[in-house]
Design a protein around this nucleic acid. Structure first.
Lengths: 257, 257
DNA sequence: CGACTTTTTGAGGGGGCTCAAGCCAAGTGG
DNA sequence: CCACTTGGCTTGAGCCCCCTCAAAAAGTCG
């Protein structure tokens, strides 16, 4: 089976054989992390890019008053935000929600990849850009939608993303989230999430029971939520692609491994 | 005076002379846009990267029910989100809030820049990453803070960013925003923004009058909002920098313009 | 079984929303 | 120079969405 991270990157750019090899090598050594564990604290400096090979994780921020806000989910093949690694700035924390298989790509290795494999580098950037699209959509979701549509939209997005990585069986999928997690994601209280889920179940749009989401008619749910999946479909423009490829060839000529 | 876009990019990476020249050439032709004008609609395809040279603009999304959510502000030197250009995906709309000077960098020109000037390209990516950091912070703001702290946090961020680009005089700055804009940014109603502003004025933390923000003690405001500016300070890690620079030199050898 | 986490329910309150009207400043045109 | 318009700001009243607090019910796991 191909490496999830490679599959993920190839959704934006078709990679060459050497590219794939290089990435595979970087993410070969993994470590397992139990569920509900902090993978990278908000305060500790990021040593490298964190790639979730298997499992389910999230990015989070804590407020002084004890509140928690989840700012993203990491599915198999996703990686932690590049800013954490490239820019020295503050970064979100990362925690596992289900047991995870995690690879960490150090800064030097990352720099080397960017240098020797521009196409792979470009793919990495593109993944970060997709991430940005998602964040923007989340702002719209939290800022402008009612509680029920908010929940529906999040579930629609997660269902779509899980399908992309082959982790959904028909109309149901596993989401290792508690109602508290949902609350911290959507800017709602736990109690209200509970009642909203009941209402949604009542209207037949979805059922969410002990980490299993069931959506009888995803089309209907998406329509209710105002969800359109186009922000999740990344494909790099050909002009850019050609430029990267050209450089890639040049690199190969000059510095064959 | 140096070009604002270059100043912006150099906040993350020190550029070489040729890099600067190339960027300057790309953003030389600008057009003026009056205030309150749509620069790029949500539906129309993005022809290129949109660089705000002067003025004040915002990114926005519209919902079916007529609601609007502002998902970002573009200050002098900022550019529209790369995803719009590189990935074919849906993108946010862009609108001017004050009169703007805007340059558009076409996809071909952008590809050419990435090819010939890796360092400049890296700077561009980094700017996008900073953008991501800001989006993440906005999610925390909208999702987890009360109305008054939300307003305080946004103002703190904008004040800091305006200082970075030299557009704030001491304790005051110009923000061409209506209360409705603030409402659409923060996920609040216009009426409530009004009352919140009054409360903040009452407590002496800030005054916002007809587009002029006055903050007597920014330290105090930031403390109230729970604002820390570290997510706005981007600086690319040296390892990455060296890799880019190395490639840059190699490029210069191989294909001198 | 006993300790714990997660979900569910109830009751009450408050933060923020909607609707609607009045106000103020800055144009615009006669 | 003054009516008239216009867009934004301000206020009031009423209410509903969602929050908090608290406790019971239902799973979960050693």
């Amino acid at each position: 089976m191909t490496h999830p991270f490679i599959t993920r990157l190839e959704r934006t750019i078709p990679l060459s054989g050497p590219d794939r090899d290089a990435i595979e090598r970087l993410t070969a050594t993994t470590r397992t992390v139990p569920a509900r564990q902090v993978i990278l604290g908000e305060d500790e400096p990021a040593r490298g890019l964190c790639v979730v090979v298997q499992g389910f994780a999230c990015c989070f921020s804590h407020l002084r008053d004890g509140g928690r806000q989840i700012t993203g989910f990491l599915l198999p093949g996703d990686c932690s935000s590049l800013p954490a690694v490239l820019l020295g700035a503050r970064h979100a924390g990362i925690a596992s929600l289900a047991p995870c298989l995690v690879a960490t790509v150090g800064r030097e290795a990352l720099a080397d990849l960017l240098l020797r494999h521009p196409l792979a580098g470009c793919a990495l950037w593109s993944a970060a850009l997709t991430q940005e699209q998602i964040l923007r959509e989340w702002i719209v979701n939290i800022g402008a939608r009612s509680a029920d549509r908010r929940v529906a939209h999040l579930f629609s997005e997660l269902l779509t993303r899980l399908r992309q990585v082959g982790r959904s069986a028909g109309d149901r999928c596993v989401l290792p989230l508690t109602q508290e997690d949902l609350a911290d994601t959507l800017g709602l209280s736990t109690v209200h999430v509970n009642r909203t889920l009941q209402a949604l179940r009542g209207s037949g749009l979805l059922r969410f029971n002990r980490g299993v989401l069931t959506v009888p008619d995803s089309r209907q749910l998406e329509s209710f939520a105002g969800f359109t999946p186009d922000y999740l479909e990344a494909r790099v423009a050909t002009e850019i692609l050609l430029a990267c490829a050209k450089r890639d060839v040049a690199e190969a000529d000059r510095a064959p491994r």
